[in-house]
Nucleic acid binder design. Structure first.
Lengths: 243, 243
DNA sequence: CAGTGGTCTAGACCACGCG
DNA sequence: GCGTGGTCTAGACCACTGT
């Protein structure tokens, strides 16, 4: 029942856990590993893919596969302890159908698009797109930021627009990256990513910003902490029900 | 730069969006589609895999591929509007290394394992494992539940153990299912899943329960809404920083 | 039974990294 | 240049579904 590539992955995982393959060490070439496990190269690559998603292995084209062990993952949200280099670029666009819907704006509405690319140790970690309609605000230009998620911009908007409270809704799904995302993040197109769609809405119903955050599964995770009170007998539960 | 299977996926996506391929309709056999797009069967399957993860296509072994359109996704957390059939099974186990760490219990501590399998229209939607140490409570047996996430058990524990407040931390990652998970959920082993690790901790530091929730990416998503107040100038932000 | 997807093979060819 | 991974081919064989 267990597939061939999973058996291979299990063995490699065991060897890594045992310390037989040390952290930072390069694995043998894929062709060699394939011969060793008596599988074809695609099957061996499927095995490595599992380990890569778990953050145990990192691949570099032209160099090889390397053991990456417990894998420090970037957490969303929250300020990372390590310094991140965040590059911000800004473009003026018009909202197309899909984006217009999410911003609750009319099609062709002018919108500022900010792209945040965060890097650690020279390798990209996350990608964020933030869309702010011109009717909400015109944004000052930034080149860098302290936050990889564009929190600075959202905060700035709330300050400037004089909004006492607002609601932020995160919608997290797993999918594969588009080829553009894969290229920006320098990940394989077969590495699943966490896609976080964040809508920030003011209390008057106006959508202040829509953000799309892309986090490669081997480099990030989403963390949320909530305090729960003793329920009033019929169990608690908010309302984001179906769909 | 765009890979071959992505081009094929783009075309199929367009044809679905155009209504050329109607909802519920069966696609041509994979061999036939492969011939049509002049690609090999593995490449065509890669294309369908992308669409499957997006929730646009559903596959059934021996029957074919079917268009599934906007895809109503099960939301975590929150009570679904539609009736879900939740099957609960209970086992007594002892905490092994990994589980013991998460429960902050000593190894070999007796633990109750609850497995929640939720189904809609006869097909599985999510899988939840909940672990409660015996030192926290002995659980009454249930066969069904209203919540697919085991909220009823957690609520019951908080009620019973007389805990005023507790903290629930969710850690969301994307990965591939184990073969056991794939079998329970009846999904392909290559369908990414959202793995939610939930730790419920009382204010005195005792871990009340550890839950592992598995949500196939084509059937579920995680939704979180938070109210944000105007920041006090130096931007806000909680502390779940790195790792 | 015939038809379908699930998995795997044994290569091929290209693009990239490094010396 | 060479060795590496990235992608794809053209099949094979098995397991499952429905008639």
């Amino acid at each position: 029942m267990t597939a061939r590539h999973q058996q291979v992955a299990d063995d490699l995982r065991r060897r890594i856990a045992m310390g037989e393959l040390a952290i930072g060490q390069r694995l043998p070439p894929e062709t060699q590993l394939a011969t060793h496990y008596r599988v074809s190269t695609p099957t061996l690559r499927d095995a490595l893919e599992l380990l890569r998603v778990e953050g145990l292995v990192e691949k570099f084209q032209g160099r090889g596969n390397f053991v990456r062990m417990p894998s420090r993952r970037l957490a969303y949200p929250g300020k990372p302890g390590v310094a991140l280099h965040v590059i911000v670029s800004s473009t003026e666009i018009t909202a197309s159908g899909d984006l217009a819907t999410r911003l609750r704006a009319r099609p062709d509405a002018p919108v500022t698009e900010l792209v945040y690319l965060s890097q650690r140790d020279g390798s990209p970690h996350s990608l964020a797109h933030i869309y702010v309609p011109h009717v909400v605000a015109r944004l000052p230009r930034h080149k860098t930021s302290a936050s990889p998620w564009g929190d600075d911009v959202i905060d700035h908007l709330i300050m400037q627009a004089d909004i006492p409270v607002a609601t932020s809704t995160d919608q997290v799904t797993a999918r594969f990256p588009t080829s553009a995302e894969a290229q920006s993040l320098r990940i394989a197109v077969r590495t699943p990513v966490l896609a976080i769609e964040r809508t920030t809405t003011a209390d008057n119903g106006v959508v202040i910003a829509f953000s799309l955050l892309v986090l490669p599964s081997d480099r990030g995770q989403v963390v949320r902490t909530t305090r729960i009170k003793r329920p009033a007998n019929p169990p608690r539960g908010k309302e984001p029900s179906d769909d």
